[in-house]
């Protein structure tokens, strides 16, 4: 019990520190504009592009929905993956690594706010898709939709945490975070079907949770019940959990390597 209480305390304080440091430099309203702008402009761009291209395999609604869910990536992959880099940059990583608290607890604690922000972004983007592009939610199964948002956010956070562990050892996790920020746009069937990718790239789609998230979101909006999308949800949960586990193991490995090479101050 003592261990759990201690972990909860670390998560709470890491989350609080993350919030305070974020809003110390940037006013909350500007941060909100940033979060919303990235998701919405991306949606506008690809919806307009689909209109320009004409006879495409995906409808405007499908593209808008795909981009609405993809908006979660900024918070769950980019922001989470940047955490070690931000610590390095501000010179606090050696302190955090040498504190008795476990590093993974601190990183997860610092991710909590971003996870909540990610879900909020998806909800705003879906509302925008309905209001501006006329995406119909008349048939939507609200429970399925909520489950898709929740499980996709969990799985993408697992992906972000896995990548963030590499940032402990690498010079900067920003490069990695930037690289994977828009990965869903190419591999996950957000704007064009996965089958349009060259066959040697399609296995990448199969291991990215967003692929299943986008598929099940479109089904949920068309009225599919939770049981109908259960396969996608289970796959996302499984992939997300595996990524979390790999991330945890990688974090321990890279933490050790960084100590041996003394690279945790290098950026």
């Amino acid at each position: 019990m003592g261990f759990i209480r201690q972990e909860v305390t670390v998560l709470k304080s890491a989350s609080g520190v993350s919030l305070r440091s974020l809003f110390a430099a940037v006013p909350w309203w500007l941060w909100l504009i940033q979060l919303v702008t990235i998701g919405l402009t991306q949606m506008i761009y690809f919806v307009l592009m689909t209109s320009v291209a004409g006879d495409t395999t995906m409808s405007i609604s499908e593209v808008a929905l795909g981009n609405a869910l993809q908006a979660v990536t900024y918070s769950t992959v980019f922001a989470v993956c940047s955490i070690p880099g931000d610590e390095k940059h501000s010179g606090t990583l050696p302190l955090v690594m040498n504190a008795p608290t476990k590093l993974h607890s601190v990183i997860i604690g610092k991710s909590l706010f971003h996870i909540a922000a990610g879900m909020m972004t998806v909800v705003i983007s879906l509302t925008f898709a309905a209001l501006v592009f006329g995406v119909s939610f008349a048939e939507v199964d609200a429970l399925s939709l909520s489950m898709v948002i929740l499980v996709t956010t969990f799985a993408m956070t697992g992906f972000g945490l896995m990548l963030s562990s590499i940032g402990i050892y690498m010079r900067s996790s920003i490069l990695l975070a930037s690289f994977f920020l828009y990965i869903g746009l190419i591999f996950c069937g957000v704007n064009f079907p996965v089958s349009h990718l060259p066959s040697f790239l399609q296995p990448i789609s199969a291991v990215l949770p967003m692929t299943y998230g986008v598929h099940s979101l479109r089904m949920a909006v068309e009225g599919a019940a939770v049981l109908d999308i259960a396969q996608d949800l289970v796959l996302m949960l499984a992939i997300g959990s595996i990524m979390l586990l790999i991330g945890f193991l990688m974090l321990r490995l890279f933490e050790r390597l960084a100590r041996i090479k003394g690279s945790y101050e290098m950026f």
């Binding site: 761009y45 690809f46 592009m49 689909t50 291209a53 004409g54 006879d55 495409t56 395999t57 920003i174 490069l175 930037s178 690289f179 920020l181 828009y182 746009l185 190419i186 704007n191 064009f192 349009h196 990718l197």
Partner: peptide, 23 residues
């Protein structure tokens, strides 16, 4: 040269996806 990556990720991805959207 690695610092070019964050600057080019968005334009490269958007251009590539644009090409993929066209039938």
């Amino acid at each position: 040269p690695q610092w070019i990556i964050p600057s080019l990720v968005a334009p490269f991805t958007f251009t590539l996806v644009t090409l993929m959207i066209y039938p």
